[in-house]
Amino acid sequence: MIPLELIDTAELPDGGTLRLMRRGQDFSILFGRNELMSSRLRGSEEALATLAYDRLRGRAAPHMLVGGLGMGFTLRAALAVLPADAKIIVGELVPKIVEWARGPLAHLFGDGLDDPRVAIEIRDVYELIAGSRAAYDAILLDVDNGPDGLIHAANDRLYGKQGLRAAHAALRPGGVLAIWSAYPDKVFADRVARAGFMVDEVKVRATGGRKGAHHVIWVAIKV
């Protein structure tokens, strides 16, 4: 068996540690015993971008906010479909994630970080949302394991009434809020609807193929 190798660690602002691991050609990021992401599973992260873009198709110069850099799968999928006049802001709370993107994970990111459409903000994505009014055509959130604060307690505010109303205000008319989760949550979906969105819960394969575990993406349209 190929051994699991620790490549690096990253400390989280409110405690806890992320571990970047490698087994052969596969990379993963762990929080405790939880595997937050893996280079083997990219389908649902890519779908987060493509499902949102399907609702935006035809808009001129779309402005997208991506919460969480991860392993770059959402960013690369967005760059593949967005037009040349688009703008993508990526809010990433942990500086080490950006270092990994330019270091041991650079092969996953390709030239995505250097694309002129992309700007990286080392900030809590909540700040980028709460400080904006009608600024974005789409907000994509993949900052935790679901609509709660597993790895960063402050993420709870993104998914509560205040955070959802802030996202609603930060979107342009008809804008899209897309949220990734490892599991379904009807209570949360109802909360999104009450914040002024038309919500569609989409199940997607983690692998991007026909087999394997499902993840959930809520695609919510501002109404």
Rank of each mutant, 00 (worst) to 15 (best):
L105P: 11
G70F: 02
D190N: 13
D8L: 03
G196I: 01
A119G: 12
D142V: 10
Y183P: 04
G196Q: 09
R19Q: 15
F31C: 05
V192M: 15
F197Q: 02
K96V: 10
A47G: 08
L69W: 02
A213H: 13
A78Q: 01
V94S: 01
L48F: 09
P3T: 14
E201V: 12
P184V: 04
L128E: 06
F109H: 13
L18N: 05
M64R: 00
P116A: 08
N155Y: 04
K186T: 14
I29S: 08
D142W: 05
D142L: 14
I89V: 13
R117C: 13
A154T: 04
P95K: 07
A47L: 04
L171Q: 08
W100K: 01
G149I: 06
H215Q: 12
F197Y: 14
A84W: 03
A10P: 14
Y183C: 02
N34S: 12
E99I: 11
A195T: 01
H215N: 15
F197R: 05
V219W: 00
R165N: 13
R123E: 12
H214S: 14
V81I: 13
D148W: 11
V118R: 01
Q25A: 11
L48Y: 08
G24Q: 09
G209K: 06
R42W: 07
L56S: 03
G131R: 07
A195R: 00
G103L: 02
L140A: 03
D111K: 05
V143S: 00
H214A: 14
A153Y: 08
H152V: 15
L79S: 12
P83L: 01
A60M: 10
R76Q: 15
A119T: 15
R59D: 08
E35S: 09
L164C: 06
V192E: 10
L177D: 02
A84Y: 02
G175M: 10
A86T: 00
A130L: 02
P83E: 06
D148Q: 11
D26Q: 13
P104L: 06
H152N: 09
G209D: 14
G103Y: 00
V202R: 07
R33G: 13
R191T: 10
